[in-house]
Simulated scan of single mutants.
Amino acid sequence: MIVDKKNDATGVLLRNGHIVLPDKTYVGDLRIRDGVIAETGQLEPEEGERTLDCSGCYVLPGGIETHTHLQLESMGTVTADDFETGTRAALYGGTTTVLDFATQFHGESMAEGLARWHKKAENNCYIDYGFHMALTEWNADLKSEMASIVEGGISSFKIYMAYKNNMMLQEDEIYDALSETKRLGATVGFHCENGLLIDVLVKEAKARGNTSPWYHQWTRPPVFEEEAITRLETVNALLHADHYVVHLSTADGLDAILKARSSGIDVIAETCPQYLLLDNTRYGTEMSEDFEAAKYIMSPPLRDKSHQEPLWDGLACGDIQFVGTDHCS
């Protein structure tokens, strides 16, 4: 881990900041001693203590980024941010822990994928980091390996219900995987889209020459997220295994989650800033071929603005439990 070798033995006093606590926010001071918050309140500097004026600033715990894809090999390229640039940017924004998706690619073990991710991150991070384990296939060898991965400290896996012939798992495989994670006390995050129908619509769009960024959203409509969540919860109703839905993007999907909860299924939900703040107007029109529109290609795609208010409301009332970026640029 990249660290600052400077040692403030006498501590640091952050003065006049907006101190954010679980139950209130107030203007005050916060003392750090030996790397630990020692006290908060209206404090006076101690002899030799370094002080920082935080007037106008919020003083709150470092953020935990739950969903990144740093230095990920995909579609013949690698995502732009590696662990050095990605964690540096995270720290600049107040995030002090990143949970990245180590990925098992076709034909390799999870241990091989995990070792590769450890090598990428080692001595290249400005902040704390951890890993989920993403699966791109399912077989008996991977199932038998899960226990050793959990024993090694990885408690969360990822399964894709999209990307046919690349990462997508079917319901029988999902059932088998959830059975094993339940036995091991682990959890699984699910990318919920109907991969089979996406594949059909993509082929149709390409055959018609509809390849501008605008068409991306129409190959992945909101109902595909809702259907996949409903299908996932149908499987999990047989098991009641710990799991969550990643990057929830639609009001329809949230409705499916609430329906599952009303039937006694405990499902956690994550959404992302892009679905709370951006909408599908970023894709331009059918004729938009400029790269500016292509910058917003992501899966799930940006949605109509009407989905934003239900997602914000879900986040405010606790129906959506956390926000991760799905940073994969």
Results as ranks from 00 to 15, higher is better:
D81C: 00
I127H: 00
I154K: 11
A241H: 10
T325N: 11
D176E: 15
A207P: 08
T68S: 10
L248I: 05
K305P: 13
G318Y: 03
G253A: 05
I257P: 03
C317G: 01
F131Y: 10
I154D: 13
E286L: 00
T136F: 11
D34H: 12
D255G: 04
K305I: 15
I154R: 11
E151R: 12
A111T: 15
D255F: 03
M287C: 02
L239S: 09
A294L: 08
D29N: 15
V267H: 05
P221G: 05
V223A: 11
V246L: 13
L254V: 03
L142H: 11
G11I: 01
H216E: 08
L14N: 06
R88M: 03
L258V: 08
E286P: 06
G195V: 00
V323L: 05
N7Q: 12
E46H: 11
D23M: 08
A80D: 12
L178Y: 09
I257N: 08
L114D: 06
A316S: 14
V98Y: 01
L13P: 07
E180Q: 15
A80S: 14
F157Q: 07
L135S: 15
I37N: 02
P213W: 01
N7I: 11
I19A: 11
E227A: 12
A228T: 03
E46T: 05
D176G: 13
A241K: 11
L315I: 01
R33I: 06
K6Y: 10
